[in-house]
Design a protein around this nucleic acid. Structure first.
Length: 273
DNA sequence: CCGACGTCCTGCTAGC
DNA sequence: TGCTAGCAGGACGTCG
């Protein structure tokens, strides 16, 4: 399930092979995506050239010349890949961009259709949408960011999943960061001291940096922009390790349901404070 | 105002 | 062996 490290990997994979490529044709069957692909976008896009691609939270923004932008979210099972036009066309491929010089295609595939790919004529439209949804990038959080949840009765796990608090953290990296910081996922936001908040921030940055280095985590569907899998799933300390011994204290990793999500933690290393 | 919870969607798998 | 219920969860709408 693509979170910040997976989305960052896709963007890095696509940056070089996509730049300067012109769209020559578009095929789509994306009417049933969470936000439907609109036929009229084709006429705006054909003839345009990819000029840059970047990430904000779990969102991808691709800029085109002379104008226009794509806003993409991978949802749970989204894949955005560049590859040979000859490669096997997998089912649930919703949008295909033919690229100039013929032999390459950019494809958007999404089995569960929780994702989306949309066209915006102006960057301001995207910025307006994202500004409302997203808090700062994790690396832009000040050391004392506890004011973002110090009045909240919600548990810290739920707070970490809130994209307006910090952008890009999802279920896997929330669990891993809380383990690294030694904080119970059930700790109420208002019970988090400045010291704990600082330790959590450090843990978030550490786990995200490490995961990006490993090209993210491939659990089921995730692949990078060049089709390569991630490797961070080998490094999980708690996520998906229910019943297995904590590698810090050997107590079995526990699993509970929090904020509607499976939540993995070490009951000994992560005590409520 | 805030937070909890249901919904969307498909494929895989545990269990009978 | 074959079937089905349950689970996976990001974003968003609704409800209390």
């Amino acid at each position: 399930m693509p979170e910040l490290p997976e989305v960052e990997t896709v963007v890095r994979d696509l940056r070089v092979p996509l730049m300067g490529r012109r769209i020559t044709a578009i095929r789509f069957s994306g009417e049933r995506l969470r936000r439907p692909w609109k036929r009229k976008w084709g006429s705006q896009l054909i003839g345009s050239t990819f000029s840059s691609i970047r990430r904000r939270g779990k969102w991808i923004i691709a800029d085109l010349k002379p104008s226009g932008h794509l806003l993409i979210h991978l949802g749970m099972t989204g894949q955005l890949t560049i590859g040979s036009a000859d490669s096997e066309l997998l089912n649930h491929t919703h949008v295909i961009f033919d690229l100039h010089r013929g032999d390459r295609q950019l494809r958007f595939r999404d089995v569960r259709r929780f994702g989306s790919i949309e066209y915006y004529p102006f960057l301001a439209g995207i910025e307006q949408v994202l500004e409302k949804k997203l808090g700062p990038e994790p690396w832009d959080l000040p050391v004392d960011w506890s004011d973002r949840f110090s009045n909240s009765s919600r548990c810290i796990k739920s707070i970490l999943l809130d994209q307006r608090v910090v952008a890009g953290v999802g279920n896997i990296y929330a669990d891993e960061a809380l383990f690294l910081a030694g904080i119970s996922p059930t700790t109420a936001g208002r019970r988090m001291s400045a010291t704990l908040a600082s330790r959590l921030r450090t843990a978030i940055l550490s786990v995200l940096d490490h995961a990006i280095e490993k090209r993210g985590s491939t659990i089921r569907d995730y692949i990078g922009g060049s089709g390569l899998q991630g490797g961070f799933q080998q490094e999980f300390r708690v996520y998906g390790r229910t019943g297995k011994p904590c590698d810090r204290c050997s107590v079995p990793i526990a699993c509970c349901r929090l904020a509607g999500r499976s939540t993995h933690y070490c009951p000994a290393c992560q005590r409520v404070t």
